[in-house]
Nucleic acid binder design. Structure first.
Length: 419
RNA sequence: GUGGCUGUAGCUCAGUUGGUUAGAGCGCCUGACUGUGGCUCAGGAGGUCGUGGGUUCGAAACCCAUCAGCCACCCCA
């Protein structure tokens, strides 16, 4: 007989850990709504071509990480590996641009990439994120950055840093890359092996090399993309930083920060925390003024971010996680008590708003008492044969051990009073 | 896709140069306490030793393969 288990890189989330997940999700909903963002949910899979066009043909995601298949009708489909392209697709499909010049959208969703799992990286993972479509102005960039920042701040993430840069518009990219390649080729042989291959394959990623020797060489010889962008784009960036200063978001202008997906332009940012290990990015984002047009719409400015929920959970200090224990544990025993106990539990939940857990295993009285103590119930209700015969229950306060007798007819009134 | 480390009870882990019936702590169940939790004590349930082959009289241990987990490379959230 085969033992079934979760597929490599996927995980079950059990009730215990989901308490924290729900806390995170609830706060995301609250904060987003507070900022005027509306939730969007897109399908789990899309046409493969959407991601190829959106993310970029040469990116790792598209070339080797997508879960793609051909269905029985011959359609080439892909489980979504990121959400910016699907959101942009939805924006176009529903002609949202014609309804309103600006749309603020957010999501919480599961994504799929076939990577080798490690800390902070799994094959099915979850992100929340926001996309503001329509404004090209720097205050929109700052708003997006503040959304991400405020969520991490709320959960008191340690050793957090916000890195910020601008990579200018898409037109200057080829010019800059040419410039970069020719400068770096002069020092090619002094660089590490991976950097040497990156010169042709993905020159921007040279700046991500963890080898300090390579970084020193690059500092000396490589031109920085920020220095090659237009005055207008530099002024845009300047304005973003002015707003961040004013709203007290600490950031570091990292002139080497680049992003991996092709659709980014202008402002790019990343929030990292060293408590995460190698996969230290909590969130990444930036402008993507060219994406909507790339997908067949008219030129529309947009900016957004995406953050990994698993990574956020990893980075949260779990010291003070609140267990949710029931208000009331309802103990009953004897042949005739079950029906009445069920009725009492139902009334307390519906009429008094109590969290009530009722015994359904029919364990011994002692076991039920132990269970009531273990699950942290503040109050225990005892309904035995004697109580049933007398039409009353015993209400026991678990911290003091005090007991009261309450007539069954007065239960709702009693518990409404004690809130 | 590449490399390193690791798989024994629900959890954390012992298990001697290969040798009878594989252990402990925590957790769970029952009882001492015939209707009162936490403390204590006693008893009990729970294992195809990740899986499949091989070596051997004999494998949890040795060999091969495979799967999974962790960490790193790579990449990214």
């Amino acid at each position: 007989m085969q033992n079934f288990r979760t597929i490599k890189g996927t995980h079950d989330l059990l009730p215990n850990e989901l308490n924290l997940w729900r806390e995170v999700e609830n706060f995301v909903h609250t904060l987003m709504q507070q900022n005027g963002y509306g939730e969007i949910r897109t399908p789990a899979f899309e046409n493969t071509e959407l991601f190829v066009r959106g993310i970029g043909t040469d990116t790792d995601i598209v070339t080797k990480e997508m879960y793609s298949w051909t269905d029985q009708g011959g359609n080439t489909l892909t489980l979504k590996p990121e959400l910016t392209a699907p959101v942009a697709r939805a924006y176009l499909q529903h002609q949202m641009g014609n309804q309103n010049p600006i749309h603020r959208l957010y999501y919480i969703d599961a994504l799929f990439r076939r990577e080798r799992p490690q800390k902070g990286r799994q094959r099915q993972f979850h992100q929340f994120g926001a996309e503001a479509i329509g404004s090209s102005n720097p205050e929109q960039d700052a708003e997006i950055i503040s959304l991400a920042y405020n969520i991490f701040k709320k959960f008191d993430i340690q050793n957090m840093s916000v890195r910020l840069n601008s990579i200018g518009n898409a037109e200057i990219r080829p010019v800059y890359l040419e410039n970069l390649r020719s400068s770096v080729k002069k020092i090619k042989l002094k660089l590490c092996a991976t950097c040497q291959t990156r010169i042709e394959k993905n020159a921007l990623r040279l700046f991500d090399c963890k080898n300090t020797h390579c970084q020193e060489l690059l500092d000396e010889h490589a031109p920085l993309i920020f220095d090659s962008i237009s005055d207008k784009d530099q002024a845009h960036f300047e304005m973003v930083t002015r707003i961040l200063n004013e709203i007290e978001i600490p950031y570091f202008h990292d002139k080497k920060l680049v992003r991996g997906l092709d659709y980014y332009s202008h402002t790019t940012f990343e929030v990292t925390s060293s408590v995460l290990g190698a996969q230290d990015a909590l969130c990444g984002g930036g402008r993507y003024n060219g994406l909507i047009e790339q997908l067949g719409g008219k030129s529309t400015p947009a900016v957004g971010f995406a953050a990994g929920i698993e990574r956020l959970i990893l980075a949260i200090d779990k010291q003070n996680i609140s267990e949710n224990s029931p208000n009331i544990y309802l103990i009953h025993f004897g042949d005739e008590t079950t029906v009445t106990a069920s009725k009492i539990a139902n009334d307390l939940r519906l009429n008094c708003g109590k969290t009530v857990v009722m015994e359904t295993l029919r364990r011994s009285f002692k076991s039920q008492m132990r269970e009531a103590g273990r699950c942290g119930a503040k109050t225990t209700i005892i309904l035995g044969e004697k109580e049933l015969a007398a039409n009353k229950i015993i209400v026991k306060d678990m911290s003091t051990g005090n007991q009261n007798e309450v007539p069954i007819s007065d239960i709702n009134q009693f518990f409404n009073k004690t809130s």
